[in-house]
Design a protein around this nucleic acid. Structure first.
Length: 850
RNA sequence: AGGCACGUACGUCAAUGGUAGACGGCUUCCCUUACAAGGAAGAGGUUGGGGGUUCGAAUCCCUCCGUGCCUACCA
């Protein structure tokens, strides 16, 4: 499971992911696989620290009043008392995780895995401490990784500032969005090929408002097309300028501090000012000096803290970093050679993942927080750095006990990156690790492919030498009814718990399962229809149980080889087999939408609308008999199989109903000693499809539907008596209808059914065709308007002819015959012949009316 | 700024290059002995526009329009 934040509560995204994971787990479990779905939570560094800090603030205290140790203790207390709401909600959602193995990223075993990884990477030179420019959040007072920063478009200004040149009356104009940083400028850069400035390269600029003299340098980074083609360089406060400064050995003048206030270095007049106040003042000063050329409106993107939305201040700071090249290369190699992980859907995620990896930069892993894994590095009084698995080990290595631990903690994602193996006991060679690693599949939302998925792959390859999972299933996003992303700030989120309350967990799960990988607008109507489906299941089961006296579930009754079964029995067994096969195929291919549709139609259409209706004559009989018991038992048995097929999607209703069914309900052999539960029965695998039964039943359905259609078109009341005449040349087929006349009578409300080799119906009849040779007529003395009936038959004929015309055009094309597969050509020809016969029969019927 | 998706019935979504489907909604009829949260029968589409490839295109290619997402160091 992607471990949710300890501070979080269940939202639609979780509900979706958890439903899919649960369906997969329950399905595999029912097939006898040893499944592990391991739950847990993430300590969520910043967000948890903020939450507890906020609570402290209400008491008028800050974390500094408590001190580190008591603050961390306070967070643990919060975690014990009110953290992990989501685990309760997951129980409600029916998530069949193994709670006995629940993990928390700050647990001692996971923490020791974190230290182990840190030490090993440090020893290999892949983790280092360095002084570099980083993303700093002045509000949260911590460094952030590139992924924790969001770029937002911003309407701003572009300021054109003029800098005088020493020993010249020329000025050079630079464009900037942040005038206040000019106080930290240590150079002006132009493109080496820019002829406008070629003479000025090497000249000295007299930086206004300061006493500094700074050089004009040439660097390829500068785009001559943008602004004036000359750029002010502030190595201490801009990532690009930092790089340029490195290349040209420019000094770094720090003019903004960690609270985004101007430093003493900025000069007396500016020191202590907020960055925006300083900006205003700098612009005023330039204007007063006549050095402000112009200000233009300019839209650019600004970096904000993903969490608190404060504008990021790039600062030079000493932090811990992880080198990514080697890790990245192994991940790319894994994908190239073994196609792991396999993304579902492959497009676009495989490419997105690859592109991101290819452009990966070093990862800033330290955070200036108290809540998290404290960095296992210690410093001696002489400044020596010691990285060790424990303080004792560090003392020993240092040869002194006078050491202090690094105050920073690790990025939350550092421990999450180890989740697939740290939760299984690594670095110990545990049985669990051997059994369950590599895992089969990860289900996740696309926004953490970089933050989490890629990092798990990299650490997995580095420390286990094997991929953490074979497949990655990336879910779609549930949007609101307007197509907007659901978010806390927009207040447009739909709470899954409310949906559970309103429509039930099972209905919600079906709705979510069919979302699969597509982005979908939330539509409550959909849930409502699945609630109705659940109701339908309940009522169908009620019917089966109402007539269950003398009956019980008996799997042998679904064997078609031995018994001489009625058509509808052979048919439902065939449908059941087909459905089971389709379900297993759909689930193996992660086709959840198809799986849900398959279940819905099997249960509602096949089982309820036809099978139950056709069973009624036997099942509801008042007189006990072996035949009645068998019919009842077979009905119960089909229901029992259907419940098993439904179970991974609808655990609650299936468990409840399954428990009520009497009879032989064996568990899967893998769980033979367990307490009875539908969870541990065998998922039906499906058997042979009976094509004869399917096609005969289809004819019966066509007959019933056709008669009902005529009833509707002639506005016949249910109480109106009708006689149905059927003309069927084939003796075999005639037998099928003869055997089912009582059924057809019940389903159509007909008084008599007369099956014969050829139709002999009065002129005043409504007619339709079962096939081109098989006809049905309903005499309607006094009710048939001959002109109307003619039109009705004409309309049917027109429909057929339109289709035939299309096919004929296709066949008329000589290329079709030569190039299309023979099978397709044959199909088209067959269909045309069928339509011709059908059409002729209709002509005959029309003629009879005249 | 680049990159990537998406656009199918009134709505939400399906459809290995082979006659475009489902559910909801809508229309008509029915409280038929499991279920009115139900039953029966229907209507509804030139698959965003245009062009191309192909025997054949919702599907592959190009282009335009519209929508969304991701990445990025343009001061």
């Amino acid at each position: 499971i992607p471990p949710p934040n300890v501070t979080g509560s269940l939202h639609m995204g979780h509900a979706l992911q958890h439903t899919l994971m649960d369906v997969m787990t329950r399905h595999k479990r029912m097939r006898g696989y040893r499944t592990l779905w391991l739950p847990g939570m993430d300590h969520a560094g910043i967000s948890t620290q903020l939450m507890v800090s906020r609570a402290l603030k209400k008491e008028g205290k800050s974390r500094h009043d408590l001190g580190r140790e008591s603050f961390v203790e306070r967070v643990w207390k919060w975690k014990r008392e009110s953290g992990g709401q989501i685990t309760k909600q997951m129980r409600r959602a029916g998530s069949s995780v193994d709670w006995s193995r629940e993990k928390f990223t700050m647990d001692e075993d996971l923490s020791s895995a974190v230290r182990e990884v840190f030490v090993r990477l440090y020893e290999e030179g892949m983790i280092y401490r360095g002084n570099r420019i980083v993303n700093w959040c002045p509000q949260d007072q911590t460094v952030l990784s590139d992924l924790e920063v969001e770029k937002l478009p911003q309407a701003g200004k572009l300021y054109y500032l003029q800098y005088p040149i020493k020993n010249s009356d020329r000025r050079v104009t630079v464009a900037t969005t942040r005038p206040e940083t000019m106080l930290g400028d240590t150079g002006v850069a132009v493109n080496p090929s820019d002829e406008r400035y070629s003479e000025l390269v090497g000249a000295t600029v007299l930086l206004p408002l300061t006493n500094r003299e700074i050089p004009i340098i040439a660097d390829d980074f500068v785009d001559p097309e943008f602004g004036t083609g000359a750029v002010k360089v502030t190595p201490a406060h801009d990532p690009n300028d930092y790089d340029m400064g490195q290349r040209h050995d420019l000094p770094q003048v720090v003019v903004i501090d960690t609270f985004a206030k101007m430093t003493a270095e900025a000069g007396e007049r500016f020191a202590g000012l907020d960055r925006y106040e300083a900006r205003k003042l700098v612009v005023e000063e330039f204007e007063a000096l006549g050095l402000l050329e112009k200000i233009v409106d300019y839209e650019f993107s600004i970096s904000k803290c993903e969490r608190c939305k404060t504008v990021i201040e790039p600062l030079i700071s000493t932090q811990w970093f992880m080198k990514m090249d080697q890790l990245r290369d192994r991940a790319l190699d894994l994908l190239a050679r073994e196609k792991k992980p396999r993304f579902v859907p492959e497009t676009p995620y495989e490419k997105v993942y690859t592109n991101w990896l290819e452009n990966l930069r070093d990862w800033t892993i330290s955070r200036q927080l108290w809540w998290g894994h404290q960095i296992p590095a210690w410093y001696t009084r002489t400044g020596e750095v010691i990285v060790a698995r424990s303080e004792d080990e560090a003392r020993e290595m240092a040869g002194t006990s006078e050491i202090t631990q690094d105050q920073d903690v690790l990025d939350t994602w550092f421990s999450s990156a180890l989740w697939p193996f740290s939760t299984l006991g690594w670095p110990n060679e545990t049985e669990d690790l051997k059994t369950f690693y590599p895992t089969s599949v990860l289900v996740t939302a696309r926004d953490i492919i970089f933050l989490w998925v890629s990092r798990m792959v990299m650490t997995g390859m580095q420390f286990i030498g094997k991929e953490p999972f074979a497949d990655v299933f990336v879910t779609g996003t549930i949007l609101d009814a307007q197509g907007q992303r659901m978010s806390k700030t927009k207040m447009n989120g739909v709470d899954p718990l409310d949906v559970f309350d309103k429509f039930g967990v099972d209905a919600t799960r079906l709705t979510l399962a069919q979302v699969g990988t597509t982005d979908t607008r939330w539509n409550e109507k959909q849930v409502e229809s699945y609630r109705n489906f659940a109701n339908k299941i309940w009522n169908a089961a009620r019917f089966c149980l109402l007539y269950s006296e003398g009956a019980k579930v008996k799997p042998a009754l679904l064997q078609t080889t031995t018994a001489n079964l009625a058509l509808h029995d052979r048919w439902i067994i065939s449908r059941l087999n087909k459905t089971a096969r389709d379900m297993n195929a759909a689930l193996a291919a992660y086709e959840f939408h198809g799986a849900v549709q398959t279940l819905y139609h099997f249960f509602w259409d096949d089982f309820c609308d036809w099978y139950i209706e056709l069973s009624k004559s036997d099942v509801t009989s008042d007189t006990p008999s072996a035949q009645r018991d068998e019919a009842r038992s077979r009905l119960l048995t089909v229901l029992e199989h259907a419940l098993r097929l439904l179970h991974p999607f609808m655990p609650y209703i299936t468990e409840e109903l399954w428990g009520r069914l009497p009879g032989e309900k064996p568990l899967h052999p893998a769980y033979s000693n367990a307490e009875p539960t539908v969870m541990l029965t065998a998922y039906p695998q499906g058997g042979p499809v009976d094509e004869t039964a399917e096609s005969e039943m289809n004819m019966l359905i066509t007959l019933v539907t056709g008669v009902r259609n005529i009833r509707a078109e002639y506005n016949l009341k249910p109480s109106d008596k009708i006689n149905v005449l059927i003309g069927i040349p084939s003796p075999n087929l005639r037998k099928v209808f003869e055997e089912n006349t009582d059924q057809v009578k019940r389903l159509t409300g007909a008084s008599t059914i007369d099956v014969s080799a050829s139709l002999n119906a009065p002129k005043a009849s409504a007619k339709f065709l079962l096939t081109s040779t098989d006809e049905v007529a309903i005499p309607l003395e006094g009710l048939v308007d001959f002109a109307e009936e003619t039109k009705r038959l004409q309309r049917k004929k027109e429909k057929l002819e339109a289709e035939a015309k299309k096919l004929q055009a296709q066949l008329a094309n000589p290329d079709f015959a030569t190039r299309a597969p023979a099978e397709k050509v044959q199909q088209a020809q067959d269909r045309i012949r069928e339509i011709e016969l059908h059409s002729k029969a209709l002509d005959q019927a029309i003629e009879n009316l005249q």
